[in-house]
Every structure is written in structure tokens, then in C-alpha cells.
């Protein structure tokens, strides 16, 4: 479910969208103020660093501004917005990966595919290791875990954003969490 501070009332939202479509800049400012933080948080969970997340959020709202006239209000605006958010963030992570691979070559693949290398128990930086473990999940599993668990979207909302069935969301969530548990087992054992 969406937090109340992140939603516009059902009456306001269509009006705001209509005004933006008419080129009302003030309405667009209100929209960014309303959803900017939430969009930032979601993108950050995919990307994991602030500078790339800021760029991505900018890209997301440019896309929204340029293509809002294609939004046909067949789904909720938030569904459309968060779908753009997820896809842009996934594209950004893929671009970062490509750039790194270009710079450091095949070593990147070896490092990123190795669980032991990514989970650094010596330093025991749990937060960093959780982000690394998240990045080892498949795109679909990572997206479901981030939306459903970290951002508390319902199964139905998550399925709408991703354009898949609720069953798929549940299955991917289970698989993702089990895989995460396996990757983080060393940390969990250490803590216990």
C-alpha cells in the first residue's frame, strides 16, 4: 500500500494530470514534489549510489514530462509512473554494469558472479553486502523484492506495475528471498 504522504487524492490526481497535459508547469512542479521522494527511494534501491540515482530520477521525470500525453488513464497514474521508474532504474544498472565491464573487462563478471567475493564477511558491512546480494538476483526477483518488501506495495500493485500476474509476483518473491537468504547465510550465521 502507498503511504498517505505519497498519494494525491483521487479527485486531485486526474486534474493534475490534465493540467500537466495542457502544459501547466506549476502542476508538474506539484507532481514532482508529490512523487519525487518515492521515485528516488525506489530508484536508489536498484542502483545503490546517490549520484547515479539523482541522474536516473532526472531521466524519469523528463520521460514523464515528455510522454504524459501518451498516458491514457486506463491504469492508475502511479502504476505508470512506477513502471517508468523501475524500467529506467533497471536500464541504468545495466548501463553501469556495461561501463564497468568495458573498463575492467572480464574481471567484473568473475567478481560479480562470485558469491564469496561479493559477500565480504571480513569487513562485515551488512548494508553493503545486502545491496550486493540484491544485485545477484534476477531482474524480476530483484524488482519484486524491492517493490513488495522494501516499498510495501501490495501483491496486486506490484503485479500492475510489472504487468504480470499476482501468482508470478508471489513465486518470484519466494524464490528471490530464498536466494537472498542463501547469499546472506554467512552473515546470518555470524550474527547468530
Amino acid at each position: 500500500m502507498l503511504a498517505p504522504s505519497n498519494t494525491l487524492s483521487p479527485v486531485d490526481e486526474p486534474q493534475l494530470i490534465a493540467q500537466i497535459k495542457e502544459g501547466n508547469g506549476h502542476a508538474f512542479r506539484l507532481l514532482i514534489q508529490q512523487y519525487g521522494k518515492r521515485v528516488y527511494d525506489i530508484a536508489y534501491n536498484f542502483i545503490g549510489n546517490h549520484s547515479d540515482t539523482e541522474d536516473t530520477v532526472q531521466d524519469i521525470f523528463i520521460k514523464v514530462y515528455r510522454s504524459i500525453h501518451t498516458f491514457r488513464e486506463e491504469s492508475a497514474f502511479t502504476t505508470w509512473l512506477y513502471r517508468i521508474t523501475v524500467n529506467t532504474a533497471l536500464n541504468k544498472t545495466a548501463a553501469i554494469k556495461r561501463t564497468r565491464r568495458r573498463i575492467i573487462g572480464n574481471e567484473y563478471d568473475e567478481v560479480s558472479n562470485s558469491v564469496d567475493a561479493t559477500i565480504d564477511i571480513g569487513r562485515f558491512d551488512v548494508r553493503d553486502n545486502i545491496f550486493k546480494a540484491l544485485k545477484t538476483l534476477s531482474k524480476q526477483q530483484r524488482t519484486v523484492v524491492i517493490l513488495r518488501h522494501l516499498h510495501e506495495f501490495s501483491t496486486k500493485e506490484t503485479s500492475s506495475i510489472l504487468g504480470c500476474s499476482e501468482g508470478t509476483v508471489k513465486t518470484q518473491l519466494n524464490r528471490g528471498l530464498k536466494k537472498l537468504h542463501k547469499k546472506l547465510k554467512y552473515i546470518i550465521d555470524e550474527k547468530q
Binding site: V126, I130, F131, H149, L177, L180, H181, L184, I187, I188
Partner: peptide, 9 residues
């Protein structure tokens, strides 16, 4: 356990 650890991020 997995959700517990995810809560830290």
C-alpha cells in the same frame, strides 16, 4: 531471516 536483513536497507 531474509526479510529481517532486508529491513536494514
Amino acid at each position: 531471516q531474509a526479510t529481517g536483513y532486508l529491513t536494514t536497507v
